[in-house]
Design a protein around this nucleic acid. Sequence first.
DNA 1: GGGTTGTCTGTAAGCGATTGCGGCAATGCC
DNA 2: GGCATTGCCGCAATCGCTTACAGACAACCC
Lengths: 341, 341
Amino acid sequence: MSITIRDVAQAAGVSTATVSRALRGLPHVDPETRERVRRVAAEMDYVVSPSASRLASGRTGTVAVITPFIDRWFFSTVLSGISDVLQESDVDLLVYEVGDPATSPGLPAERRLRGRVDGVIVVTLPTDAPRIADLLEIGLPASFIGVRWPGVPSVCIDDAAAARMATQHLINLGHERVGILSGRPQASTSQAARARGYTEAMKGAGLEPEEAAYGYFTVAGGESAMTSLLSQPRPPTAVFAMSDDMAFGAIRALQRHGIRPGVDIAIASIDGHDLSELLDLTTVGQPVEQMGRMAAHALLDRMLGRDNPDAGDPDAGEIAVPTTLVVRGSTVPVERTTSLG
Amino acid sequence: MSITIRDVAQAAGVSTATVSRALRGLPHVDPETRERVRRVAAEMDYVVSPSASRLASGRTGTVAVITPFIDRWFFSTVLSGISDVLQESDVDLLVYEVGDPATSPGLPAERRLRGRVDGVIVVTLPTDAPRIADLLEIGLPASFIGVRWPGVPSVCIDDAAAARMATQHLINLGHERVGILSGRPQASTSQAARARGYTEAMKGAGLEPEEAAYGYFTVAGGESAMTSLLSQPRPPTAVFAMSDDMAFGAIRALQRHGIRPGVDIAIASIDGHDLSELLDLTTVGQPVEQMGRMAAHALLDRMLGRDNPDAGDPDAGEIAVPTTLVVRGSTVPVERTTSLG
DNA sequence: GGGTTGTCTGTAAGCGATTGCGGCAATGCC
DNA sequence: GGCATTGCCGCAATCGCTTACAGACAACCC
């Protein structure tokens, strides 16, 4: 029923081997023959059977992206960047949504990936996910986003620097009690780095770091974390949130308490979320889509073996991307804020 | 190097046929034999070669989702719902991001899908996309979200009703000049239905529908559309936006002009976006993730041939999902708004 | 003119599963 | 006891392509 390479070969008066070579642009085919094969194939509306091609060649032309979520801004934006690059190279994108690593089994077993894809991109999971090692063991080319791993291209921002930048900005505005909205108790390396950046900035200014309130990187979490900060005897005059989503939640909490961000309290965070501008939120922006693109490119390079193995470099593979502080109305000098204490 | 079904067969002392049947739970295998094969396979860490299995069986165990975007709330949320359902059934999810149908080539050619997937889910594209017909022609099971198509399971909200609901709500509050933020001039059916709902509500109340301002379903578009509405001689006292994103943009525009939504002007929209609560936006919510789930289920039913063919029903396949008006602070009675005229 | 290249093409052996068909016991039935 | 079932299992033919290998032929160089 479906037409095969044999039909094309017959119609073009050549062997299947020649059809295969002609259609894939391999050398050792007479230009004239190639053209004829192409024409015949087009006329017959022939398309290569991916299954057969995979089985015979061992290549799948597919990349898997493993991500905790797809319906959150950061992840969907990364995905979009990846998708863009992959599509340009005619590589298919397989998505595995694995949920919050803290509560779900995490990565799909490497058994799931084996033979199914040519490479894998893993997006921000705690490095302690044990299965990552399995993934690499089967020799699958990989690239990571948001998690460093020796020998694997890892697209990361300098989390500590970003947190320091945001915190320092608040400190520069005169704030001395700067609260912090963190993710969860047992931290990913990325979260730990942000915590470090905050602490460094505070200590560097001779200030006492506050105890973290946990917002689990969600809007709802940010809201309740902020609420708990507000219930303290002497609430902070400024807050650093590890993510825009948590900052959004915090703003919500503030609204409920009749406290105006950018007037009564200052707030800054990390992400550069699409809607941060809308909420007039000061944030340390990261080029999220770009990060997806870079990870995809790095992976493709690996897969095609055209990456320059910078051997000897211990940090080989780490791809640092810059962050920029975007100052908006949510951060005001301390003297303009109303004392909440 | 990699271990195959033959290795397992040999180790278990049976034929490859039996291994295949045993591992896939097919009948005609002695329970004891099956158990032994299972154990041996597990010990050897055997995994079926997907490529070989596909070629031999003709099934891919994969579904493609074709979506204009993945980094926008609606689409990523739908995707997440789909992903959930598919994962439960051990079906792989292939994502094709095709961009704005108005400006990009649109659907990937059916040639791309042929033999690559067992089914396809198409998310909200204008029905006039000619390639949809091609897709169905090759007999690929399909299901749609946001676009009705005869004979194909189509998960849709009642767009007209949703728009009517939002508009009516504004009218009930006493507004007589209700502006409308629409998508783009040449409409998708879904957009056209929303326009119709708005017009019906207005005319039903004896009011004159306003001319649409185009916001292209984006935040930035909504902002400039709202700005243009504000530059009219007598701006509306209320605005209906076809999507939350455009409403967000509109709010931004209002902020820039020093106009307070929910105080000086009323605004309502459609979506039920995650952050609509944060912005205190009245919106007609749709169960977006649920819609993804339903489309996925419908597709799986089709693929397994276990859908009940409700033959004779002309609307067969249309799956209507309910919407609910969520009233928030952005909609106030007209008498409380400041006249802007 | 014989050997060496080099270009183009065909032959055929895989790739690793799935599955129709037939064989062979063990069982059931008259 | 003979014969039809039934339940398990193996044989071997596919599935449609890729690719090592080799053959044919032309061009080139001494």
